[in-house]
């Protein structure tokens, strides 16, 4: 191996919590931090950009801006300053979904999250969203009572909480948006007959056998089954 100089890994410098480390080029922020010796118990999850657990704050070399993204989806670059956020301690309001009918409330979102009235349209939330959502626009839609628009614009939110960490008005964008989507789902969207049918089938025990089979499988077989799964679901069955 020593004679093949080309294959030697090119290294970059990163600063984790202010301390300098040398890590191989081409890693994500998450794997670079792990290479440097950090072990993630919280602040990491699916590693596929879906779960929103690995919110990270960083600054690039020679940039004045703080940037936000997901650590599992962002490449580590030379000269980066990094910190990982394990959790966002934002309050999520409790509500009874049966009692938040938008037909009966002019503005149910404002009712549960009155701080949306403090929005100054600074757009910091939008700029910090790793999903590139129009976060400010859905907060504004929520303020004017437009639940459908709030739900639609926030549909791809993965609840990482970066918007909330940065908001000068202390708005809980991701919890607000989740409430909007739930209300929209319950009160505005068409009821799915297929879902009802499937629920009845489950109740009737149609899948009991298959479930039992899965429960009794060894991990190796289960893994194989998972790898081979059909994402779209088979026709009738």
């Amino acid at each position: 191996m020593a004679e093949n100089e080309d294959e030697e890994q090119e290294m970059i410098e990163i600063f984790a919590m202010g301390k300098k480390y040398e890590v191989p080029k081409g890693l994500t922020i998450m794997t670079a931090l792990e290479y440097a010796g950090y072990k993630f118990v919280r602040g990491c999850g699916c590693r596929g950009g879906f779960c929103g657990a690995c919110a990270t704050v960083f600054r690039k070399k020679d940039e004045y801006k703080l940037r936000m993204d997901l650590a599992c989806q962002t490449a580590a670059e030379d000269g980066m300053y990094l910190v990982q956020l394990p959790f966002v301690p934002a309050v999520r309001e409790e509500y009874d979904i049966e009692e938040v009918d938008p037909e009966e409330h002019d503005n149910v979102l404002l009712d549960y999250y009155p701080e949306i009235a403090r929005c100054v349209s600074c757009n910091t939330c939008t700029k910090s969203c790793p999903q590139d959502l129009d976060v400010m626009d859905f907060v504004q839609a929520a303020l004017r009572g437009d639940i459908e628009r709030t739900a639609d614009l926030s549909f791809d939110c993965i609840q990482c909480g970066l918007c909330t960490i940065r908001c000068p008005a202390d708005i809980k964008h991701y919890h607000l948006a989740q409430m909007a989507r739930r209300i929209h789902g319950k009160y505005n969207q068409e009821y799915s007959d297929e879902l009802q049918k499937r629920l009845e089938e489950i109740e009737e025990g149609k899948y009991d056998e298959k479930m039992k089979e899965l429960i009794e499988m060894c991990e190796e077989d289960l893994r194989e089954r998972y790898e081979e799964r059909d994402m779209q679901g088979e026709e009738e069955g």
Binding site: V120, S121, C122, M136, D137, L143
Partner: peptide, 24 residues
Amino acid sequence: DWYCCGAVQSLSTDDIMHQIAPIR
């Protein structure tokens, strides 16, 4: 497109932040 104006004008000389929404 439009944004909430803020309803009351901010009167502080140094407060540009609260002018952003109407300007937007």
